[in-house]
Design a binder for these strands. Structure first.
Lengths: 167, 167
DNA sequence: AATTAACTCGATTAGTCCAGTAGGGTTTTA
DNA sequence: TAAAACCCTACTGGACTAATCGAGTTAATT
Protein backbone atom coordinates (compact mmCIF):
# COMPACT_ATOMS: atom_id res chain seq x y z
CA UNK A 1 0.00 0.00 0.00
CA UNK A 2 1.28 3.36 -1.01
CA UNK A 3 -0.06 6.60 0.40
CA UNK A 4 -0.05 9.26 -2.29
CA UNK A 5 0.32 12.99 -1.88
CA UNK A 6 -3.41 13.16 -2.30
CA UNK A 7 -3.87 10.65 0.51
CA UNK A 8 -1.64 12.68 2.77
CA UNK A 9 -3.64 15.83 1.98
CA UNK A 10 -6.84 14.00 2.81
CA UNK A 11 -5.47 12.89 6.18
CA UNK A 12 -4.20 16.36 6.98
CA UNK A 13 -7.53 17.94 6.10
CA UNK A 14 -9.35 15.38 8.20
CA UNK A 15 -7.07 16.03 11.14
CA UNK A 16 -7.88 19.70 10.91
CA UNK A 17 -11.60 19.03 10.76
CA UNK A 18 -11.21 16.74 13.75
CA UNK A 19 -9.50 19.48 15.71
CA UNK A 20 -12.46 21.76 15.04
CA UNK A 21 -15.11 19.15 15.57
CA UNK A 22 -18.41 20.64 16.75
CA UNK A 23 -17.37 24.15 15.89
CA UNK A 24 -19.35 24.47 12.71
CA UNK A 25 -18.40 24.17 9.07
CA UNK A 26 -15.00 25.26 7.85
CA UNK A 27 -14.37 26.69 4.43
CA UNK A 28 -12.17 24.86 1.92
CA UNK A 29 -10.14 28.03 1.67
CA UNK A 30 -9.41 28.04 5.38
CA UNK A 31 -8.41 24.40 5.43
CA UNK A 32 -6.20 24.95 2.41
CA UNK A 33 -4.61 28.01 3.96
CA UNK A 34 -3.99 26.56 7.40
CA UNK A 35 -2.69 23.23 6.18
CA UNK A 36 -0.98 24.74 3.17
CA UNK A 37 -2.68 22.56 0.58
CA UNK A 38 -3.59 23.44 -3.03
CA UNK A 39 -7.14 24.74 -2.80
CA UNK A 40 -8.63 23.33 -5.96
CA UNK A 41 -7.08 19.94 -5.42
CA UNK A 42 -8.37 19.89 -1.87
CA UNK A 43 -11.83 20.64 -3.20
CA UNK A 44 -11.72 17.39 -5.17
CA UNK A 45 -10.58 15.44 -2.16
CA UNK A 46 -13.29 16.80 0.10
CA UNK A 47 -15.84 15.97 -2.55
CA UNK A 48 -14.72 12.35 -2.47
CA UNK A 49 -14.86 12.29 1.30
CA UNK A 50 -18.33 13.75 1.12
CA UNK A 51 -19.51 11.14 -1.37
CA UNK A 52 -18.15 8.51 0.99
CA UNK A 53 -20.22 10.11 3.74
CA UNK A 54 -17.28 10.73 6.00
CA UNK A 55 -17.70 14.48 5.92
CA UNK A 56 -20.64 16.69 5.04
CA UNK A 57 -20.83 20.05 3.37
CA UNK A 58 -22.86 23.15 4.09
CA UNK A 59 -23.54 25.19 0.99
CA UNK A 60 -23.93 28.88 0.50
CA UNK A 61 -22.46 31.77 2.40
CA UNK A 62 -21.18 30.63 5.79
CA UNK A 63 -20.80 27.17 4.33
CA UNK A 64 -17.94 24.74 4.49
CA UNK A 65 -17.11 21.20 5.57
CA UNK A 66 -17.38 19.26 8.81
CA UNK A 67 -17.08 15.68 10.00
CA UNK A 68 -20.19 13.55 9.98
CA UNK A 69 -19.01 11.45 12.91
CA UNK A 70 -16.92 11.85 16.01
CA UNK A 71 -13.18 11.78 15.36
CA UNK A 72 -12.93 8.64 17.48
CA UNK A 73 -15.28 6.92 15.05
CA UNK A 74 -13.21 7.62 11.97
CA UNK A 75 -10.41 5.15 11.34
CA UNK A 76 -7.37 6.06 9.28
CA UNK A 77 -7.89 2.89 7.25
CA UNK A 78 -11.19 4.23 6.01
CA UNK A 79 -9.64 7.37 4.59
CA UNK A 80 -6.65 5.59 3.12
CA UNK A 81 -8.73 2.91 1.44
CA UNK A 82 -10.96 5.54 -0.07
CA UNK A 83 -8.16 7.63 -1.54
CA UNK A 84 -5.39 5.11 -2.17
CA UNK A 85 -7.06 1.73 -2.32
CA UNK A 86 -6.42 -1.57 -0.53
CA UNK A 87 -3.92 -1.86 2.29
CA UNK A 88 -2.22 -4.92 0.82
CA UNK A 89 1.19 -4.39 -0.80
CA UNK A 90 -0.02 -6.30 -3.83
CA UNK A 91 -3.60 -6.69 -4.97
CA UNK A 92 -6.09 -6.85 -2.14
CA UNK A 93 -6.75 -9.22 0.73
CA UNK A 94 -9.44 -11.11 -1.11
CA UNK A 95 -7.28 -11.72 -4.12
CA UNK A 96 -4.33 -12.78 -1.97
CA UNK A 97 -6.43 -15.33 -0.13
CA UNK A 98 -7.58 -16.71 -3.42
CA UNK A 99 -4.01 -16.95 -4.73
CA UNK A 100 -2.93 -18.69 -1.54
CA UNK A 101 -5.61 -21.27 -2.20
CA UNK A 102 -4.95 -21.71 -5.89
CA UNK A 103 -1.30 -21.09 -6.71
CA UNK A 104 0.67 -23.87 -5.09
CA UNK A 105 4.02 -22.65 -6.37
CA UNK A 106 3.76 -19.19 -4.92
CA UNK A 107 1.37 -19.47 -2.02
CA UNK A 108 4.09 -18.96 0.55
CA UNK A 109 5.01 -15.69 -1.11
CA UNK A 110 1.42 -14.50 -1.19
CA UNK A 111 1.05 -15.51 2.43
CA UNK A 112 3.87 -13.12 3.30
CA UNK A 113 2.09 -10.37 1.37
CA UNK A 114 -1.05 -11.10 3.34
CA UNK A 115 0.89 -10.99 6.59
CA UNK A 116 2.17 -7.54 5.65
CA UNK A 117 -1.29 -6.31 4.81
CA UNK A 118 -2.66 -7.72 8.08
CA UNK A 119 0.05 -5.96 10.04
CA UNK A 120 -0.82 -2.66 8.36
CA UNK A 121 -4.53 -3.24 8.83
CA UNK A 122 -4.04 -3.99 12.49
CA UNK A 123 -2.55 -0.54 12.97
CA UNK A 124 -4.71 1.50 10.64
CA UNK A 125 -8.03 -0.05 11.64
CA UNK A 126 -7.32 0.70 15.26
CA UNK A 127 -6.08 4.23 14.91
CA UNK A 128 -8.71 6.93 14.67
CA UNK A 129 -8.58 10.65 14.03
CA UNK A 130 -9.10 11.19 17.74
CA UNK A 131 -5.92 9.25 18.41
CA UNK A 132 -3.77 11.48 16.25
CA UNK A 133 -5.18 14.87 17.13
CA UNK A 134 -4.70 14.37 20.84
CA UNK A 135 -8.38 13.81 20.93
CA UNK A 136 -10.95 12.62 23.22
CA UNK A 137 -12.95 9.72 23.38
CA UNK A 138 -13.26 6.02 23.68
CA UNK A 139 -12.66 3.81 20.76
CA UNK A 140 -9.10 4.87 20.83
CA UNK A 141 -6.44 2.40 21.63
CA UNK A 142 -3.17 4.11 21.05
CA UNK A 143 -1.39 4.80 24.26
CA UNK A 144 0.38 8.07 24.49
CA UNK A 145 3.46 6.83 26.24
CA UNK A 146 6.63 7.05 24.34
CA UNK A 147 8.01 3.87 23.06
CA UNK A 148 9.72 2.73 19.99
CA UNK A 149 7.39 0.09 18.83
CA UNK A 150 3.85 -0.43 19.84
CA UNK A 151 2.81 -3.49 17.95
CA UNK A 152 2.62 -7.09 18.82
CA UNK A 153 5.37 -9.35 17.58
CA UNK A 154 4.74 -10.62 14.16
CA UNK A 155 6.88 -13.49 13.16
CA UNK A 156 6.42 -14.87 9.74
CA UNK A 157 6.76 -18.55 9.79
CA UNK A 158 6.21 -20.37 6.65
CA UNK A 159 5.93 -24.05 6.87
CA UNK A 160 6.34 -25.78 3.60
CA UNK A 161 3.32 -27.65 2.50
CA UNK A 162 0.92 -24.86 3.08
CA UNK A 163 0.54 -25.48 6.74
CA UNK A 164 -1.31 -22.97 8.81
CA UNK A 165 0.64 -20.85 11.11
CA UNK A 166 0.41 -18.44 13.94
CA UNK A 167 -0.61 -14.88 13.42
CA UNK B 1 4.97 0.37 -0.03
CA UNK B 2 3.55 -1.03 -3.18
CA UNK B 3 4.86 -4.13 -4.88
CA UNK B 4 4.64 -3.75 -8.65
CA UNK B 5 4.21 -6.45 -11.25
CA UNK B 6 7.91 -6.13 -11.87
CA UNK B 7 8.57 -6.67 -8.16
CA UNK B 8 6.44 -9.79 -8.19
CA UNK B 9 8.32 -11.11 -11.23
CA UNK B 10 11.60 -10.49 -9.45
CA UNK B 11 10.44 -12.42 -6.41
CA UNK B 12 9.15 -15.29 -8.50
CA UNK B 13 12.38 -15.50 -10.45
CA UNK B 14 14.38 -15.45 -7.23
CA UNK B 15 12.24 -18.21 -5.77
CA UNK B 16 12.97 -20.33 -8.79
CA UNK B 17 16.69 -19.67 -8.58
CA UNK B 18 16.52 -20.54 -4.89
CA UNK B 19 14.85 -23.86 -5.67
CA UNK B 20 17.72 -24.68 -8.02
CA UNK B 21 20.46 -23.36 -5.80
CA UNK B 22 23.77 -25.11 -6.39
CA UNK B 23 22.62 -26.71 -9.59
CA UNK B 24 24.43 -24.39 -11.93
CA UNK B 25 23.28 -21.42 -13.94
CA UNK B 26 19.78 -21.27 -15.38
CA UNK B 27 18.92 -19.58 -18.62
CA UNK B 28 16.64 -16.56 -18.71
CA UNK B 29 14.51 -18.43 -21.18
CA UNK B 30 13.99 -21.33 -18.80
CA UNK B 31 13.08 -19.07 -15.92
CA UNK B 32 10.68 -17.16 -18.13
CA UNK B 33 9.11 -20.33 -19.41
CA UNK B 34 8.74 -22.10 -16.10
CA UNK B 35 7.45 -19.08 -14.22
CA UNK B 36 5.52 -17.75 -17.20
CA UNK B 37 7.15 -14.33 -17.25
CA UNK B 38 7.85 -12.08 -20.27
CA UNK B 39 11.36 -12.98 -21.31
CA UNK B 40 12.72 -9.61 -22.32
CA UNK B 41 11.28 -7.92 -19.28
CA UNK B 42 12.74 -10.56 -17.04
CA UNK B 43 16.10 -9.91 -18.66
CA UNK B 44 15.98 -6.33 -17.38
CA UNK B 45 15.03 -7.45 -13.92
CA UNK B 46 17.83 -9.99 -13.68
CA UNK B 47 20.26 -7.36 -14.84
CA UNK B 48 19.22 -5.14 -11.95
CA UNK B 49 19.56 -8.01 -9.52
CA UNK B 50 22.98 -8.69 -10.93
CA UNK B 51 24.09 -5.07 -10.56
CA UNK B 52 22.90 -5.25 -6.97
CA UNK B 53 25.10 -8.33 -6.58
CA UNK B 54 22.28 -10.56 -5.48
CA UNK B 55 22.62 -12.87 -8.44
CA UNK B 56 25.44 -13.49 -10.88
CA UNK B 57 25.46 -14.35 -14.54
CA UNK B 58 27.46 -16.81 -16.56
CA UNK B 59 27.93 -15.76 -20.15
CA UNK B 60 28.21 -17.77 -23.29
CA UNK B 61 26.79 -21.12 -24.15
CA UNK B 62 25.67 -23.03 -21.07
CA UNK B 63 25.34 -19.67 -19.35
CA UNK B 64 22.53 -18.28 -17.25
CA UNK B 65 21.86 -16.89 -13.81
CA UNK B 66 22.35 -18.14 -10.29
CA UNK B 67 22.19 -16.80 -6.75
CA UNK B 68 25.35 -15.35 -5.29
CA UNK B 69 24.37 -16.30 -1.74
CA UNK B 70 22.45 -19.00 0.03
CA UNK B 71 18.70 -18.59 -0.12
CA UNK B 72 18.65 -18.25 3.66
CA UNK B 73 20.88 -15.19 3.30
CA UNK B 74 18.62 -13.33 0.92
CA UNK B 75 15.82 -11.38 2.57
CA UNK B 76 12.66 -10.44 0.76
CA UNK B 77 13.16 -6.86 1.90
CA UNK B 78 16.35 -6.65 -0.11
CA UNK B 79 14.64 -7.59 -3.35
CA UNK B 80 11.61 -5.42 -2.74
CA UNK B 81 13.66 -2.36 -1.83
CA UNK B 82 15.73 -2.78 -4.96
CA UNK B 83 12.81 -3.06 -7.34
CA UNK B 84 10.06 -1.08 -5.65
CA UNK B 85 11.80 1.22 -3.20
CA UNK B 86 11.35 1.91 0.52
CA UNK B 87 9.00 -0.16 2.67
CA UNK B 88 7.31 2.88 4.21
CA UNK B 89 3.80 3.70 2.97
CA UNK B 90 4.93 7.29 2.45
CA UNK B 91 8.45 8.51 1.83
CA UNK B 92 11.08 6.48 3.62
CA UNK B 93 11.96 5.76 7.24
CA UNK B 94 14.61 8.45 7.39
CA UNK B 95 12.30 11.12 6.06
CA UNK B 96 9.51 10.06 8.40
CA UNK B 97 11.76 10.32 11.42
CA UNK B 98 12.78 13.77 10.35
CA UNK B 99 9.16 14.83 9.91
CA UNK B 100 8.29 13.45 13.32
CA UNK B 101 11.00 15.66 14.75
CA UNK B 102 10.17 18.78 12.80
CA UNK B 103 6.46 18.91 12.00
CA UNK B 104 4.67 19.36 15.31
CA UNK B 105 1.21 19.50 13.74
CA UNK B 106 1.47 16.20 11.95
CA UNK B 107 4.01 14.19 13.87
CA UNK B 108 1.41 11.82 15.24
CA UNK B 109 0.33 11.01 11.71
CA UNK B 110 3.87 10.40 10.54
CA UNK B 111 4.44 8.24 13.60
CA UNK B 112 1.61 5.99 12.45
CA UNK B 113 3.21 5.80 9.01
CA UNK B 114 6.46 4.81 10.65
CA UNK B 115 4.70 2.17 12.73
CA UNK B 116 3.28 0.69 9.55
CA UNK B 117 6.64 0.65 7.84
CA UNK B 118 8.24 -0.96 10.92
CA UNK B 119 5.59 -3.66 10.94
CA UNK B 120 6.28 -4.40 7.28
CA UNK B 121 10.04 -4.30 7.81
CA UNK B 122 9.78 -6.69 10.72
CA UNK B 123 8.22 -9.26 8.43
CA UNK B 124 10.19 -8.71 5.26
CA UNK B 125 13.60 -8.39 6.91
CA UNK B 126 13.07 -11.68 8.69
CA UNK B 127 11.75 -13.67 5.80
CA UNK B 128 14.30 -15.12 3.42
CA UNK B 129 14.05 -16.99 0.16
CA UNK B 130 14.78 -20.18 2.05
CA UNK B 131 11.68 -19.58 4.15
CA UNK B 132 9.37 -19.39 1.17
CA UNK B 133 10.76 -22.15 -0.99
CA UNK B 134 10.67 -24.74 1.74
CA UNK B 135 14.39 -24.75 1.50
CA UNK B 136 16.92 -26.14 3.65
CA UNK B 137 18.25 -23.94 5.79
CA UNK B 138 19.08 -22.60 9.08
CA UNK B 139 20.48 -19.16 9.04
CA UNK B 140 17.17 -17.56 9.48
CA UNK B 141 15.91 -16.98 12.92
CA UNK B 142 12.35 -17.94 12.62
CA UNK B 143 11.17 -20.41 15.13
CA UNK B 144 10.24 -23.75 13.82
CA UNK B 145 7.30 -24.37 16.10
CA UNK B 146 3.94 -24.40 14.57
CA UNK B 147 0.94 -23.45 16.50
CA UNK B 148 -2.47 -23.99 15.19
CA UNK B 149 -4.28 -20.77 15.12
CA UNK B 150 -7.26 -20.12 13.05
CA UNK B 151 -6.79 -17.08 10.93
CA UNK B 152 -7.16 -13.91 12.92
CA UNK B 153 -9.56 -11.62 11.19
CA UNK B 154 -8.40 -8.12 11.76
CA UNK B 155 -11.65 -6.38 12.37
CA UNK B 156 -15.22 -6.81 11.32
CA UNK B 157 -14.82 -3.57 9.48
CA UNK B 158 -17.63 -1.18 9.84
CA UNK B 159 -18.79 0.42 6.69
CA UNK B 160 -21.06 3.32 7.32
CA UNK B 161 -23.18 3.12 4.28
CA UNK B 162 -20.25 4.40 2.37
CA UNK B 163 -18.78 3.38 -0.88
CA UNK B 164 -17.90 -0.24 -1.16
CA UNK B 165 -14.25 -1.10 -1.45
CA UNK B 166 -12.83 -4.50 -1.51
CA UNK B 167 -10.56 -5.82 1.14
C1' DA C 1 38.44 -19.92 -36.54
C1' DA C 2 33.73 -19.94 -37.06
C1' DT C 3 29.50 -20.51 -35.14
C1' DT C 4 26.20 -20.04 -31.92
C1' DA C 5 24.24 -19.51 -27.48
C1' DA C 6 23.70 -16.19 -24.09
C1' DC C 7 24.01 -12.00 -21.62
C1' DT C 8 24.31 -6.42 -22.08
C1' DC C 9 22.20 -2.28 -22.65
C1' DG C 10 20.35 1.83 -24.79
C1' DA C 11 16.18 3.31 -27.23
C1' DT C 12 11.34 3.34 -27.79
C1' DT C 13 6.39 2.93 -26.86
C1' DA C 14 1.49 2.66 -25.44
C1' DG C 15 -1.01 3.17 -21.64
C1' DT C 16 -1.98 4.59 -16.99
C1' DC C 17 -1.58 7.22 -12.87
C1' DC C 18 -0.48 11.48 -10.30
C1' DA C 19 -0.87 16.16 -9.05
C1' DG C 20 -2.89 19.91 -10.08
C1' DT C 21 -5.54 23.63 -12.87
C1' DA C 22 -9.56 25.70 -15.20
C1' DG C 23 -13.98 27.20 -15.50
C1' DG C 24 -18.30 27.21 -15.50
C1' DG C 25 -22.86 25.50 -12.75
C1' DT C 26 -25.80 25.21 -8.61
C1' DT C 27 -27.32 26.23 -4.01
C1' DT C 28 -27.77 29.08 0.00
C1' DT C 29 -27.50 33.13 2.82
C1' DA C 30 -27.61 37.97 3.74
C1' DT D 1 -30.50 39.62 -6.26
C1' DA D 2 -25.80 39.36 -5.60
C1' DA D 3 -22.18 37.32 -3.35
C1' DA D 4 -20.31 33.30 -1.15
C1' DA D 5 -19.51 28.70 -1.23
C1' DC D 6 -19.73 24.15 -2.76
C1' DC D 7 -20.42 20.95 -7.22
C1' DC D 8 -18.70 18.83 -11.14
C1' DT D 9 -16.56 17.85 -15.62
C1' DA D 10 -12.76 18.30 -18.35
C1' DC D 11 -8.10 18.85 -19.26
C1' DT D 12 -2.92 18.67 -18.98
C1' DG D 13 2.09 17.86 -18.32
C1' DG D 14 4.99 14.79 -16.39
C1' DA D 15 6.30 10.55 -14.43
C1' DC D 16 5.92 5.83 -14.10
C1' DT D 17 4.69 0.91 -15.77
C1' DA D 18 5.22 -2.88 -18.40
C1' DA D 19 6.92 -4.09 -21.86
C1' DT D 20 9.49 -4.72 -26.72
C1' DC D 21 13.33 -4.10 -30.17
C1' DG D 22 17.64 -4.55 -31.91
C1' DA D 23 22.34 -4.11 -32.17
C1' DG D 24 26.54 -5.32 -29.51
C1' DT D 25 29.67 -8.20 -26.50
C1' DT D 26 31.33 -12.39 -24.43
C1' DA D 27 32.18 -17.18 -24.05
C1' DA D 28 31.71 -22.18 -25.09
C1' DT D 29 31.56 -25.56 -28.58
C1' DT D 30 32.62 -27.64 -33.03
Amino acid sequence: MKISQKGLYALQAMMMLARHYNQGAIRIRDIAYEEDLPEKFLELILLELKNARIVESVRGAKGGYQLRREPSEIRLSEIIRLIDGPLAPFGDAEQLRSLIDRDREHRTLYQVFLDVRNAAARILEHTTLADIVGGKGPGSKRDQTKKKTAEAPVLPMVVQGGRRREE
